[in-house]
Design a protein around this nucleic acid. Structure first.
Lengths: 186, 204
DNA sequence: GCTTTAAAAAGTAACGT
DNA sequence: ACGTTACTTTATAAAGC
């Protein structure tokens, strides 16, 4: 029926970048409204953007991690806001800092209930982790693309560890064909 | 030369002492859990394999020993839940679970998911119900697991619900509270699994 | 190894009402 | 018996302990 690929939804994108300048986080924390900075707890300063919604972790070295965005475009938009906020504080920020996507978290739906016990045996107990006493999802690590999939009894799944949106599509394709080969879909 | 020799002996002695400690801890925990000697032997074999594969580095000896015992109980078909195992260990449940998954992966133990039926005899005897209830509970587990209800569910909660349902069907009613207590799950979990199971069984 | 941040999946638990 | 909140799992960068 529904192509599982069409149910793919990006839930979170993690990216890293840097302004090419060292920062005095103590003063940034004073001047930047909404900034959370507790060096005893964590060396990074936390700054949240509202639209697009994301959280930026800003470090003394000038390196920044952005997480929580729903697309790579949102990551760029969020970081543009962060860069401008820093510029407002008279902090030098490189023209177009390189932004590297480090992880994309995706959800999808295979549209059928899954017998995780059968899938665990079918995929090979040495290739999966399935401990329903600890977590309801079956953990399946793929080599190509290099991502990790969490499969649930409902047929829904989570793909994480990818760096490109296509990684999730390829992963879903491989999982679907693998389960079909095993006769474990539907 | 002499120094190197002494160091080697010191290391060997420390290693021996650590192994002795691990095995005596395994013995103590196994006794507390009331598992047969065969399980302790399986646990010690797994522990020695982990030791040979250098999997203990960076982990506590007791954490590894506890995880090996947990794995051994499962391999022998008389599982103890992580909660039960953690009660006789000084290592916290989360760490035992983590270490178990690591050891299981690295040693290629190919552990199968726990069959809820394996909890039924022990839970039933603790409740003091008849063999009829025990058989009925196992039947409920087989039928409902076959229909796909087991995916992602905790084995203890699934077993507890089936025992509760069986006790009702056999007119030997146990309260949800009593069953929850022996299985160490909440009444809410028993209620949720029970509803799904009786619906799948086509009862009432 | 840990600390922090975000997000999904589904199960379980512990609160309060 | 509800409802809410929060924890479990996966990946990932950052700096420091």
């Amino acid at each position: 029926m529904t192509d599982p690929k069409e149910t793919i939804n990006i839930e979170n994108v993690v990216a890293s970048t840097g302004i090419g300048q060292e920062l005095d986080l103590q003063s940034v924390a004073m001047d930047l409204e909404g900034a959370d900075y507790d060096p005893e707890q964590f060396p990074g300063l936390v700054y949240r953007t509202q639209e697009p919604k994301s959280a930026a972790l800003i470090f003394r070295s000038g390196k920044i991690v952005c997480t929580g965005a729903k697309s790579t475009d949102d990551v760029h938009e969020s970081l543009r806001i962060v860069f401008d906020k820093l510029r407002d504080l008279n902090i030098q920020v490189n023209e177009d800092p390189e932004i590297v996507v480090q992880n994309i978290v995706t959800s999808a739906d295979l549209g059928r209930n899954l017998n995780l016990n059968a899938i665990a045996i079918g995929l090979g107990l040495e290739n999966i982790e399935y401990e329903p006493e600890q977590f309801p999802g079956l953990v399946y690590r793929l080599d190509e693309p290099e991502v990790v999939a969490l499969l649930f009894g409902s047929g829904k799944l989570v793909i994480t560890g990818g760096k490109k949106p296509e990684d999730a599509e390829h992963a879903v394709d491989k999982i679907v064909s693998r389960l079909e080969d095993l006769g474990l879909l539907e | 030369r002499l120094r190197k020799w002494q160091e080697r002996i010191r290391t060997k002695d420390a290693g021996e002492r650590n192994l002795q400690f691990a095995l005596s801890e395994t013995d103590r925990m196994a006794s507390a859990l009331g598992v047969p000697r065969s399980v302790r032997e399986v646990a010690s074999v797994i522990y020695r394999r982990a030791l040979n594969e250098d999997l203990i580095r960076g982990r506590s000896i007791e954490g590894v020993a506890t995880s090996c015992l947990y794995a051994a109980c499962r391999q022998e078909g008389i599982p103890r839940s992580l909660e039960e195992v953690s009660e006789v260990s000084r290592v916290e449940q989360k760490e035992i679970g983590r270490t178990y998954r690591y050891i299981s992966q690295e040693l290629g133990l190919r552990m199968e998911p726990v069959d809820p039926k394996e909890y039924v005899p022990r839970f039933c005897s603790e409740l003091g119900v008849s063999e009829e209830v025990e058989m009925k509970a196992k039947e409920i587990i087989d039928v409902t697991a076959e229909k796909g209800l087991l995916s992602g569910k905790s084995p203890t909660g699934f077993a507890a619900a089936a025992i509760y349902a069986a006790s009702l069907l056999c007119n030997e009613k146990q309260t949800q509270r009593e069953v929850a207590s022996v299985a160490q799950v909440t009444e809410v979990t028993i209620r949720n699994r029970y509803q799904e199971q009786i619906e799948a069984m086509g009862i009432q």
